[in-house]
Write a protein that binds this DNA or RNA. Structure first.
Lengths: 210, 210
DNA sequence: TCTACAATCACATTATGATGTGATTTTACT
DNA sequence: AGTAAAATCACATCATAATGTGATTGTAGA
């Protein structure tokens, strides 16, 4: 089994050394590049023979933030997997990092052994999250049980048609009612939702706000 | 430290027994109810003294599916944490389960020891995902960098305005061009995307289809 | 240089959407 | 029986959107 080539972007030299010393002692992992900033890292990898397969990335760095650096790193190394290793555990940082393309997110409190485990999991195509972070991620899926009693069943039919891109006429046809009925329903929907355009309705629908 | 009260909903009796035997041998976990269906489980817990704090839930059950059962379980036991334990690893099942309110998702291939670990993690307010499942979840955040060369930069500006719910007039004002220019852009956009209404445009935009 | 294309604007017509007022019917609850 | 809410339809009006035809300018590439 070949070694896992690892890159580290971390501006705290103490943590740099701690990680480096630890991975040096691991036969499975080879740390090919350590930098203090994304800018520096991107420059350095141009002269490397073996490119990193996985990057441990901090957020709070000297130059650009780790989150802003993700697209740049992925651009240079399209196949790299990025593991965030950071003290920031706020929902916003987690969300932004994942949206930018990070595949795992670890708290800096994570023991070295678990970090190694995460690297191995990721190198096998999986993903590892710190438990507290995983919980925050799943909460983004199911926070709003909006349950919407706002709209009546018929109104929901109408909304479905609109979100589908149908015109009032088409909706009227599909539901076997007159176009004036459709209009009335839409008037009532707009009133209930306090909006006044299809665009807002579609947005609300996609944002699960009904 | 008090025991963790566990419920299990699983229709395969072999797995039922295997889980039960295993947890019986664990001092930290107390299995208070095992049922083969959500319906049965909901009935049974009414006569229990100690209610489960965590439920291991299968998807493929005799009556209603585990996913459909999640809201009912949460309704009866609002503070319960639900861990999916299932063979289904398709994105859709995972997504639906999390949206319905499950807090963890384990493959049935997960070793008993890891299942126990997951239960403990969840009981401490965290969440544990099988690595392959965690990867699928993070992929839902940063899916396709569609990069769409379909639309020109200016056309994208126009689309942004439309998706924002602005009228042509407002867009024209914002971009310092005439409303006729906006109209022309939109005509071209519709032609390129082979659509013919704002609604469809907004839908495509929200679905990342441009 | 010729060409393609993005971006700009104009004019014109028809279609669709937004909003108001008012009315009838059915169902469900008090 | 009375009331409320949901669903249905009509008529009217103004605003906005969709679509066609035609034209100019600037820029990037064959």
């Amino acid at each position: 089994m070949s070694k896992i080539n690892l890159g580290i972007v971390e501006d705290d030299t103490l943590i740099q050394e701690s990680l480096n010393d630890f991975f040096d002692a691991q036969s499975e992992i080879d740390c090919v590049q350590i930098s203090s900033s994304v800018e520096d890292f991107l420059t350095s990898i141009k002269s490397l023979e073996t490119l990193p397969k996985i990057i441990l990335l901090d957020i709070n760095l000297l130059g650009m933030s780790g989150i802003d650096g993700i697209p740049l790193l992925l651009n240079e190394l399209p196949k790299v997997d990025i593991i965030m290793l950071t003290t920031f555990e706020d929902n916003d940082s987690i969300y932004k990092a994942l949206c930018a393309g990070a595949c795992s997110y670890l708290s800096k409190k994570t023991p070295l052994k678990k970090i190694k485990e995460a690297i191995e999991v990721v190198s096998k195509g999986g993903s590892y999250m710190s438990p507290s972070i995983a919980r925050k991620i799943v909460n983004t899926f199911a926070p709003k049980q909006h349950k919407s009693n706002l709209l009546t069943p018929r109104q929901k039919d109408i909304v479905a048609g609109i979100v589908d891109g149908k015109s009032y006429k088409m909706i009227a046809n599909d539901l076997f009612v007159s176009i004036d009925t459709v209009r009335t329903h839409i008037k009532n929907i707009y009133k209930t939702l306090e909006i006044n355009s299809k665009a807002e309705l579609i947005r609300k629908s996609y944002d699960n706000e009904l």
